[in-house]
């Protein structure tokens, strides 16, 4: 709104003929810092409205109108009560006693009500706090149980790993001892059609001890390597060879397998998972023992 527009509307503003929106616009204009005669125009218009009102015949006002205003300036007037004649002393005592009893009763009721309310509030608060604490404890217990379960699994896994390591260490020590024994035979196992040896068997027939050492038996999904002791046409399973990720295998051979006499050869086949009582898969590696 410009100053010219405001001044054109000033009369209607003073006379109260602007809508709420128009009034807001006019007030917003007045709030602006710079004007060229807007306030003076509004003042002139307001004076004109005052003259319009002064053209009416004034009316006398009763003084009670002012008293009504005055009483509301200072709050509501006190309620006046008619004084009653004083009762005889007995009646007065009886009324006083009754009034005191009523006051005491009300006070007692108020106190009880207050106590009951406080008790109810305290009970509600305690119930809420207990529910909160129970919920917290339940959550903490569930968390602790989960942590304990996870730790137990890790402990078991760690124990298995340690056992495996210890077994490996035992086998390695066993293999080293066998290797250092003069009577131990070292038998190389190679593919039947020739090729580079893929494993070695350390056999001590006197002590009925043996191990198989390989670094070329890579793990294969759904299959297991199986070691065989061959004597004549008999093929005795000496157990499964579980290769590590790098293909390394160090397996000990059960001493019972040497009880029936000197083996002729040692072989490795690839069988289905879990092995087989007799070889079914192809012979991957085979090594014959030297004739005694």
């Amino acid at each position: 709104m410009t100053c010219a527009e405001f001044q054109e509307s000033a009369g209607l503003m003073a006379v109260g003929a602007l809508s709420t929106e128009e009034m807001s616009l006019a007030e917003a204009h007045l709030a602006e810092p710079r004007h060229s005669g807007c306030l003076a125009a509004l003042r002139r218009a307001a004076d004109g409205v005052e003259v319009l009102a002064r053209s009416l015949s004034p009316a006398r006002l009763d003084e009670r109108v002012w008293r009504g205003i005055e009483s509301q300036l200072a709050g509501p007037p006190p309620v006046k009560r008619a004084r009653r004649a004083a009762p005889p002393w007995r009646e007065r005592i009886a009324w006083s006693a009754a009034a005191a009893a009523v006051v005491l009763l009300l006070a007692n009721l108020a106190a009880r009500s207050h106590d009951n309310r406080r008790f109810a509030e305290q009970t509600a608060t305690a119930t809420q706090e207990r529910a909160t604490a129970t919920g917290t404890l339940e959550r903490e217990r569930a968390t602790a149980t989960a942590v304990a379960t996870r730790l137990e699994k890790e402990r078991e896994s760690c124990a298995r790993d340690l056992l495996a390591v210890r077994d490996d260490a035992d086998r390695q020590r066993f293999a080293l001892e066998l290797l250092q024994t003069p009577a131990t035979l070292v038998v190389s196992l190679a593919p039947p059609k020739g090729g580079k040896p893929g494993a070695r068997a350390l056999l001590n027939l006197e002590q009925r001890k043996g191990v198989l050492l390989s670094v070329a038996l890579a793990p294969q999904a759904g299959k297991d390597y199986e070691l065989w002791i061959i004597r004549g046409d008999k093929k005795l399973s000496a157990g499964l060879l579980r290769a590590g990720p790098s293909g390394g295998v160090l397996a000990s051979i059960d001493s019972g397998l040497f009880a029936s006499g000197r083996p002729d050869a040692v072989a490795v086949t690839l069988e289905k998972t879990g092995g087989a009582p007799q070889p079914t898969g192809p012979i991957l590696l085979v090594g014959a023992l030297p004739k005694s």
């Binding site: 001044q7 209607l12 002139r44 218009a45 004076d47 004109g48 005052e50």
Partner: peptide, 19 residues
């Protein structure tokens, strides 16, 4: 309407000082 209101009030305003 605006102009009539403005003109009328300006005329009446001039009377206030005299009144």
């Amino acid at each position: 309407v605006k102009t009539r209101a403005r003109l009328a009030l300006e005329k009446l305003s001039a009377l206030l000082g005299e009144a």
